[in-house]
């Protein structure tokens, strides 16, 4: 039998309500990427990770566990799991992340911070006070729990005197820029993706010569919710990457299937395989700008395709 929808959503919503994240991870793990960078604590402008990159290794591990439960008799025990999860965080037992994956995703955040520094952007970080945005619970329609959480996130920013937020992934950008303002009266944060911030500061020197052919996979959320389509292309061109467009691209990009991952892991993988085929028809080197797209597409592609986050391409020329 498939995963029971109500109880699976219930576990995620309970986690957000009780533990401030759909998949609670230790604060030390969430902030580990920033060690040694000496980023100021807080400030008027902060880099807000929304914990998305840090969560991906856990989500991948959880998805693997869910895949074993889906269509098996174990699915009958999800309701029991929800009851236990209210007392003990069971996701901590189910999701054992791969160390090499954690290192890689932490490295992407390091790269983003270095790119911003190199571009002359002054910013701080909230460290262990940073909260997850609530994006998944919003998508699943648990609006009451989400609205309460959104207010807590906003209050955290206000208490710290934050005025400008630089986001690193499309889902968090959409929550803070387009969804929170509908829920929170007087919402006054200026929210921009780091891709927009960097693209604005590009010197007018035109594309760098040479470079590899890379097929681009646009995030649905950046392209269709936030209309962020050009900054990533400008940045890649300036870094000397020749961007190739797949069959469905830009505003008409094809979804990676990732949003189905939490409830229908097999369907998510099927959709990802279709998108991978489109990408591979153009190049075996691909670039994504959303960690959910990256992990879902890479799972479907296996070793046949080299997919990398846009930050990994852009940092090729940045000194460590």
């Amino acid at each position: 039998m498939p995963l029971p929808t109500g109880d699976t959503i219930g576990i995620l919503a309970d986690n957000l309500r009780l533990r401030k994240s759909v998949l609670p991870i230790p604060a030390g793990v969430a902030t580990r990427w920033s060690r040694g960078l000496n980023l100021p604590r807080g400030g008027e402008t902060v880099l807000y990770t929304g914990m998305m990159y840090q969560l991906i290794p856990y989500i991948a591990a959880m998805s693997k566990a869910q895949g074993k439960v889906e269509d098996s008799p174990l699915a009958n025990f999800v309701r029991l799991g929800r009851m236990i999860n209210k007392v003990v965080n069971i996701s901590g037992f189910m999701a054992r992340p791969a160390r090499d994956m954690q290192v890689r995703y932490d490295g992407m955040l390091v790269g983003i911070a270095r790119l911003l520094e190199q571009a002359g952007v002054e910013f701080g970080y909230l460290y262990e006070e940073e909260l997850y945005s609530g994006a998944l619970v919003y998508d699943l329609g648990v609006d009451d729990v989400f609205a309460q959480h959104a207010r807590e996130v906003y209050q955290t920013f206000r208490k710290k005197g934050v005025k400008n937020v630089i986001t690193v992934d499309p889902h968090t950008t959409n929550m803070l820029r387009s969804v929170y303002p509908q829920l929170i009266e007087g919402y006054d944060l200026q929210v921009r993706s780091y891709l927009e911030v960097l693209a604005e500061r590009l010197p007018a020197t035109g594309p760098a010569p040479g470079g590899a052919d890379v097929v681009i996979h646009d995030s649905c959320v950046y392209a269709r919710y936030e209309n962020i389509i050009e900054p990533q292309r400008k940045l890649l061109a300036a870094a000397g990457i020749k961007v190739k467009e797949p069959r469905d691209s830009g505003k008409f990009t094809l979804c990676c299937g990732g949003p189905a991952e939490s409830l229908f892991p097999k369907k998510a993988l099927e959709r990802a395989a279709i998108r991978v085929a489109q990408l591979q028809a153009v190049s075996r080197q691909g670039v994504t700008m959303c960690p959910i797209c990256l992990v879902n597409l890479q799972k479907a592609a296996g070793p046949d395709m080299n997919l990398r986050d846009i930050s990994e391409y852009l940092t090729q020329g940045v000194r460590p």
Partner: peptide, 28 residues
Amino acid sequence: YSCLLCKMCEVNCPAGVHIAENVRTLRY
């Protein structure tokens, strides 16, 4: 719940229906 909320339908809809938000409303 299978809907990806990817808005591929919405961006192609000639009537401007807020499809993704309607689906989210049904989920709620």
